[in-house]
């Protein structure tokens, strides 16, 4: 066990934790977006509500969701620990003149962007996830379901009529996109996966992902606000 603790507490081990949890969160976001796009369908919330019911009642998915909570917390805590240690590594005096152009904005501000993502997650989960968990949502009855189903769609549709919430969501997605602009490809570099054969592809994929996925999320509140 000693070897594993040594590994996980080494600088490279801590970066491996960041990259693996980060990649897990990236794969989660993909699934999350695909499910949420059903919020755009015009069936009064049937597809989305039954999807949400499935996601909260399937034992396999429930088990995975505990992993997800754990990995978000681990990623956030580990990221903040790294950021703190890195700040201390500079020493008491900071440079009087800041270098410009030697690294991207995203790469230099991962902790700030991550903290903003975390703030967004608190708002987001308080709004929907927590209410669902606490059974605070009104229910609807659908044919073929033994019990009434929480009307998460109704809550979402109501919240997205508030322009402030729509703006908060769009900003949250821009921040997420910036975090992933650097984070996506960085995770592969941390894992030691860097090769002229595939690194250009990973970098391209990372840029596409960090634009398209946050844009996909942002479209939902915008469409609800403008057209529903």
């Amino acid at each position: 066990m000693r070897w594993l603790i040594n590994f996980l507490s080494s600088s490279l081990g801590q970066k491996i934790i960041m990259s693996l949890t980060g990649l897990f969160l990236i794969s989660f976001l993909t699934v999350h977006l695909l499910g949420n796009l059903s919020l755009l369908s015009d069936d009064g919330g049937y597809t989305f509500n039954t999807y949400a019911y499935f996601m909260t009642h399937n034992p396999l998915i429930k088990a995975t969701s505990y992993g997800l909570y754990f990995f978000i917390v681990l990623h956030a805590i580990q990221g903040l620990v790294i950021a703190l240690k890195n700040r201390m590594a500079r020493g008491a005096n900071r440079y009087a003149v800041k270098a410009k152009g030697n690294a991207s904005f995203s790469s230099k501000n991962m902790a700030l962007l991550g903290t903003l993502v975390l703030a967004f997650l608190f708002i987001h989960m308080g709004d929907f996830w927590l209410r669902m968990k606490l059974d605070w949502l009104p229910t609807v009855v659908y044919e073929g379901y033994a019990e009434p189903i929480a009307d998460l769609y109704g809550r979402v549709a109501m919240q997205f009529q508030n322009p402030l919430i729509v703006i908060a969501y769009v900003i949250g997605q821009i921040v997420l996109g910036l975090h992933l602009w650097h984070g996506f490809q960085s995770a592969f570099q941390s894992l030691g996966l860097n090769h002229p054969k595939y690194t250009p592809f990973i970098k391209g994929l990372g840029k596409a992902y960090s634009i398209l996925v946050p844009a996909g999320f942002a479209i939902i509140p915008i469409v609800h606000f403008l057209f529903k």
């Binding site: 801590q14 491996i16 960085s186 030691g192």
Partner: peptide, 29 residues
Amino acid sequence: GFGMCSNTGACEVDCPKEISISNIALMNR
């Protein structure tokens, strides 16, 4: 007590010998 690499790439830009951060990936693996 050095810091941890965030893969910003600032080092390879300022390295007088232009050594690539692909070396860091190789070290990691």
